[in-house]
Every structure is written in structure tokens, then in C-alpha cells.
Design a protein around this nucleic acid. Structure first.
Length: 480
DNA sequence: TGAAATGTTGGGGCG
DNA sequence: ACGCCCCAACATTTC
């Protein structure tokens, strides 16, 4: 029998516009489709709980798609390198094809594969996860960009002419039986309790779901993106993040679809595609600074006097801070595995600056609860809010949760959706219930402190404390 | 991809 | 008519 090609699926769980898969199929040899769940490494960033839910369904969909091509997906649990070596020896394969990734663990692994396997098999690595490779965009000195705008401009100088590839119509099946786990073996879905119950009604993981989501976005919201993207009470964002994270759709497919739609902007000016470049930028940062998820990019922040209050952190996690816009966001996250981006900034600012809790703690919570948890985006965004990242917001830019609420959820629709106990409060007080006159509270059937918490901190005092803490950090820097 | 404090201006009430 | 005060509206600076 012909020796097969191993196609190693990673976070490219799609058949269309998948250069690596296409190349594997085009060898004309039988293709062994493989997915490895690797929990063996020591990285603290093993896949989070909400992402496991997504992964389960995404793999399940991929298996359905492959079945139509008369092929199965071989599931293996274990150390990626060992499992790859194992399957190569089981099949006698002489080629290994895959898509590259940019996390420190992935970079290390790809280097090791290159060293250890290259003498025995052909190792072919393809791009596809980003619009621009980290090596491809740099300053005139050859340094990686640390500031977004020049990075963005440099990206726009690059040619964007690629046409997305169609899914292979057929592939040569590898007919020998290979041992495979079942998805159920991996127990990726939560049970007792099934906290992901309402994920099903919010999401449709997999390639088809990704394209349906894109279609809905192109249908209208993309043209109002600039105005509506900050409104959590309106469906104005693409909600493509989890699909992009798992590679169910390529950024190139989105880029091209937008270019070909009747979008009001050209892609180089589109406020939405600009966000896609932020995604590249985050991966660029992580690629060049592998400690980004753990350590502040601005070193002086290592001396920041964070508070370690488990109790406060828990109030934040459970959506019980007493600030409705913050609590609504945290509850949306818990219920759906996702949070509107404007609200992510608000809750992050609140944790970091009002509660003075380290951004790493917030990042860890997001990592576990977001279906779109992505190491590059998550760490770059948290550091951005904290003011310690590359090209970050200044630390002293402290969001006022009441003003943010009034501005971006002016009728309290978003708050009422996620905090139904406040539903009857008049618009005027929806973002600051504690300011409500007693009689109106009574009419609304709300008793603060029992139905809904009183604010766990006073924002104006918290703001002063935050600025004082920054001062303390600066003094520490001076003295050292 | 803020917010608060502080400064400036100008209209109107009023003695 | 005039100066004075108040304060909203807007601008600037500071954090």
C-alpha cells in the first residue's frame, strides 16, 4: 500500500482555505487525518473549560465533514511529539503536513519536530492562521513593531491578493484501521452541573457555523460597525472570535468576503478589518515576546502593589460588584462563554483599577470562561487595559462604570437582559441603582443589598487609590 | 478605544 | 448703566 501523508489538524479545524490540508491532499497520496489533544506539557495555558466545550463540537463537526469524504479523524491523547512519532511509525508515513501557530509551546514544538523528524520524514509547515506572518512585518531596522499604528500601516503596504482555496472535493482514503479515541473519551463537555447549557443556543461551532456567522455580519452590521461596535445592547459585532480562534474560518476568507461585499469601506480603511490586524498584532507580540502572557511588557509594572483579595475577585467573577454594567458583562460571560468587547474593557478596567487586582487574575478567569480564549489576544488585551502592554492605554485612563454604562447602554437594555432583578429600574438609575430614591426602589421591587448588591467599592475613592498605587510603583522604580 | 479637575467665557439676574 | 455673582458651556490640563 502507498505510504500516506499525515495531516495534523491543530487550530485549523476547517476544510476550505486550508493551504496545508490542500497541499497534503494534492500529493495524491492517502491522507491520515489526525488530531492530538495534548495536556502533557507544563504550560499553565492548557485549554480552558469553555474552550473545551467548543473544541468538542468543532471536532465533532469536522468528523462529520470528513466522513462525507470517506475519511475519519484519528483522535489521540498525549504528548504531541510522541504521538506524531507513533503514528508515523504505525503508518510508515513519509510526510507530515500542518499549519503553523505562534504560542511559545507551539513554536518550541515546531522547532523540535523540525530537528527530530526531518531526517526521517518530510515536515511541511504552512501559514494560514494570520493575515501577516511575524517575520513578514518589521521596522526598517528589522525590529518587530511595538506600536499598533505603524504596524498597521506596514501591513497595509503588503499585497493582499490571495484567493481563498476551496475545500478538497475528495481525498485518497487511508484504508488501514488506526487506533483512535472517541470524542466521548476525552470528556470535554461539562457534566454535573452542565454550565454550558445555554451555549448551544448562542453558538454553532464548526466551519458551517462560522460561515453562517460571517454571512449574517456581512448582511448589515459590518456597514454600521464603526457606530455600533461599542453598543453591547445592539448586535453590531461579528462574533467570529471563537470561530477564528479554532481556525474554522481563516482571516483571509473574512478579508476577501468583506472586500467582495458591498461594504462602504475599502479594506484598508474598514474599521472592522482593522480589528483583524489587531489580531495579527497580538500574535506578533506573543511570537516575539513569549513571556507576554505572564509578565508585564513594561517592566516597571512588576513592582505594582496589587491587592490579593480573593473575596473581591469572586464578586467580580460572579457579577456581584454592584456596578450593573460590570455585573451584566460578567454574567453574559458566564452564561454564553463570550462578552461584548466594549464590556470586556469596562470589566477589565474595573478589576485592575477599581479593585487593584492583578491583570493576570482577570486573564486567567477569561482564559477559563471564554469560548474564544486565545493566548495572544487575551494577554495583549489585558495588558493593554492595565497600561503595562505594548502600545497600551495609559494607566491613568480609568473607566467610570456609570458613565460607560450611560454612554454605551443608554437605555439599560443590556443590563436588564443580564440582570433581570434590575429590570424595573427607570433608565435614569439603571447604571447606578444605589442613587435611586427609596420610593422608586420600592416601586421597582428592589431591595439593594439583598436582591442586588450595593457597590463593593466607591468608584471615586477607588480611582484615587488606583492613582496612588501607580505613584507607589513609580517611587519603587526610582529607588531601585 | 477617558475622566476629573481646573480654567475661560459669556449671558442673565440683581442690587 | 454698571459691577458683581452665579453658573452653564466649552476648552485645557492633569491624572
Amino acid at each position: 500500500m502507498e505510504t500516506p501523508v499525515i495531516y495534523w489538524f491543530r487550530r485549523d479545524l476547517r476544510l476550505s482555505d486550508n493551504s496545508a490540508l490542500n497541499a497534503a491532499v494534492n500529493t495524491g497520496r492517502p491522507v491520515v487525518c489526525l488530531y492530538i489533544l495534548d495536556e502533557s506539557h507544563s504550560s499553565p495555558w492548557r485549554i480552558g473549560s469553555a474552550s473545551r466545550w467548543w473544541l468538542h463540537h468543532s471536532l465533532s463537526r469536522l468528523m462529520q465533514q470528513l466522513r462525507k469524504l470517506n475519511t475519519s479523524l484519528v483522535l489521540r491523547l498525549g504528548d504531541s511529539k510522541k504521538e506524531l512519532e507513533r503514528i508515523i511509525s504505525e503508518t510508515g508515513a513519509q510526510s507530515l503536513y500542518f499549519t503553523r501557530h505562534y504560542e511559545p509551546e507551539s513554536i518550541k514544538l515546531e522547532q523540535e519536530l523540525n530537528h527530530r523528524l526531518k531526517s526521517k520524514v518530510e515536515v511541511k509547515r504552512y501559514k494560514g492562521y494570520l493575515l501577516h506572518e511575524p517575520e513578514q512585518v518589521h521596522t526598517l531596522n528589522g525590529e518587530p513593531y511595538k506600536v499598533f499604528t505603524p504596524y498597521y500601516k506596514a501591513c497595509m503596504q503588503q499585497p493582499h491578493t490571495h484567493t481563498p482555496l476551496k475545500a478538497p472535493k475528495s481525498l485518497k482514503t487511508y484504508s488501514n484501521n488506526l487506533a483512535s479515541d472517541t470524542l466521548a473519551d476525552w470528556q470535554l463537555l461539562p457534566t454535573n452541573p452542565n454550565w454550558a447549557e445555554s451555549f448551544d443556543s448562542n453558538w454553532n461551532p464548526g466551519e458551517a457555523g462560522a460561515h453562517a456567522m460571517l454571512h449574517d455580519f456581512l448582511n448589515e452590521p459590518v456597514n454600521q460597525y464603526e457606530d455600533l461596535r461599542n453598543r453591547p445592547d445592539i448586535a453590531g459585532t461579528s462574533r467570529l472570535s471563537p470561530h477564528l480562534h479554532f481556525g474554522e474560518i481563516s482571516p483571509r476568507q473574512i478579508w476577501t468576503a468583506i472586500e467582495q461585499s458591498d461594504h462602504h469601506y475599502s479594506n484598508s480603511e474598514s474599521p472592522y478589518t482593522r480589528q483583524l490586524i489587531w489580531r495579527d498584532f497580538s500574535h506578533n507580540l506573543l511570537f516575539h515576546w513569549p513571556h507576554f502572557p505572564e509578565q508585564p511588557f513594561k517592566k516597571e509594572f512588576a513592582a505594582f502593589p496589587w491587592r490579593r483579595s480573593k473575596k473581591m475577585l469572586q464578586c467580580w467573577q460572579r457579577g456581584k460588584t454592584g456596578y450593573p454594567i460590570v455585573d451584566a458583562g460578567m454574567r453574559e460571560l458566564w452564561v454564553t462563554g463570550w462578552m461584548h468587547n466594549r464590556v470586556r474593557m469596562i470589566v477589565a478596567s474595573f478589576l485592575i483599577k477599581d479593585l487593584l487586582i492583578a491583570w493576570q487574575d482577570g486573564q486567567a478567569w477569561f482564559w477559563d470562561t471564554l469560548v474564544d480564549a486565545n493566548l495572544a489576544n487575551n494577554s495583549a488585551s489585558w495588558q493593554w487595559v492595565a497600561g503595562c502592554g505594548a502600545d497600551a492605554a495609559p494607566y491613568f485612563r480609568i473607566f467610570n462604570p456609570i458613565l460607560q454604562g450611560n454612554k454605551f447602554d443608554p437605555h439599560g437594555t443590556y443590563v436588564r437582559k443580564w440582570i433581570p432583578e434590575l429590570a424595573k429600574l427607570p433608565d435614569k438609575f439603571i447604571h447606578a441603582p444605589w442613587q435611586t430614591p427609596e420610593s422608586i426602589l420600592k416601586d421597582s421591587g428592589i431591595k439593594l443589598g439583598s436582591h442586588y448588591p450595593l457597590p463593593i467599592v466607591d468608584h471615586s475613592i477607588a480611582r484615587q487609590n488606583a492613582l496612588a498605587a501607580l505613584d507607589k510603583m513609580k517611587k519603587h522604580k526610582k529607588n531601585s
